[in-house]
């Protein structure tokens, strides 16, 4: 059994989630619910949950504010939100769990299963802290992006990613230290997640870190800092050159 806590300002939303968990994830025992962040603070401190179901937009204090106040964040979080593009972007960046309202059963089960798997690894603290940092400093190139790989989640500062290549629905990520990792996310996910971090898509299956571009060859090849070569598609060459010129002027 896993201990769960639900925090949401709408009692209706709490009851709904409780019902759904009871029916579809019976291995989660809800040990407490809170409809404001003050109660939630005490409840979490007392009960040491494995999984926290947390609403983001709440009166006076958001879900993120609550996390900020808590001394220990050693539990898995599944965010439950109506609509919050900005927050979802940060949550996905850290590879944390979330479900959107109205809640889809399949999504909920998936998020819970994921959380259960990670609880045993005992490193939730890191990812949760990471999220708070990203919310404070979006776009900081030292921010670590959570990359789901076969054995778990790898956290990598965006500045260490040289370039990414989409391969059969997965993504191969080339790192500064010469190694590479393969993620089950497709390239499109990375394009969205890294859009505030000076990445560019020169080709439909390539994403490059602008800071790692070494030189550009006239025939449409970018040479990266790790000496690998990335093609620029014919139609994007002009736009790419314009962007490079703009960056030079900016610096």
């Amino acid at each position: 059994m896993y201990k769960g806590i639900i925090v949401d300002d709408e009692p209706k939303a709490i009851k709904l989630l409780q019902d759904m968990l009871h029916q579809y994830c019976p291995e989660i025992a809800i040990t407490g619910t809170a409809n404001n962040t003050d109660i939630a603070f005490d409840l979490i401190s007392m009960k040491n949950p494995d999984i926290l179901f947390l609403d983001i937009a709440m009166p006076r204090e958001s879900g993120f504010d609550l996390l900020e106040r808590l001394p220990k964040l050693d539990f898995e979080i599944i965010f439950v939100t109506g609509f919050d593009e900005y927050a979802l972007q940060a949550i996905k960046f850290c590879a944390l769990g979330y479900v959107v309202k109205p809640i889809q059963v399949a999504e909920l089960v998936k998020a819970v299963n994921n959380a259960k798997r990670v609880v045993s690894l005992k490193d939730s603290h890191l990812a949760n802290r990471q999220l708070l940092k990203i919310l404070k400093e979006p776009g900081n190139k030292k921010n670590r992006i959570g990359i789901p790989i076969a054995s778990g989640i790898e956290f990598m500062p965006t500045e260490q990613i040289v370039h990414c290549e989409g391969v059969k629905g997965c993504t191969k990520i080339f790192l500064q230290n010469g190694t590479s990792i393969i993620s089950s996310y497709n390239l499109g996910e990375f394009i969205k997640l890294l859009k505030d971090y000076d990445f560019y898509t020169p080709h439909k299956s390539h994403l490059v870190n602008m800071d790692h571009i070494q030189r550009y060859h006239r025939e449409g090849i970018i040479e990266m800092s790790n000496n690998s070569k990335v093609p620029v598609s014919r139609r994007r060459r002009q736009a790419f050159l314009d962007l490079m010129r703009q960056q030079e002027l900016g610096e």
Binding site: E10, L16, G82
Partner: peptide, 15 residues
Amino acid sequence: HFVFNALGAIQFFIR
């Protein structure tokens, strides 16, 4: 936000 919360409320009444 309004739309999805409203749909969430409807989901509650149904369940």
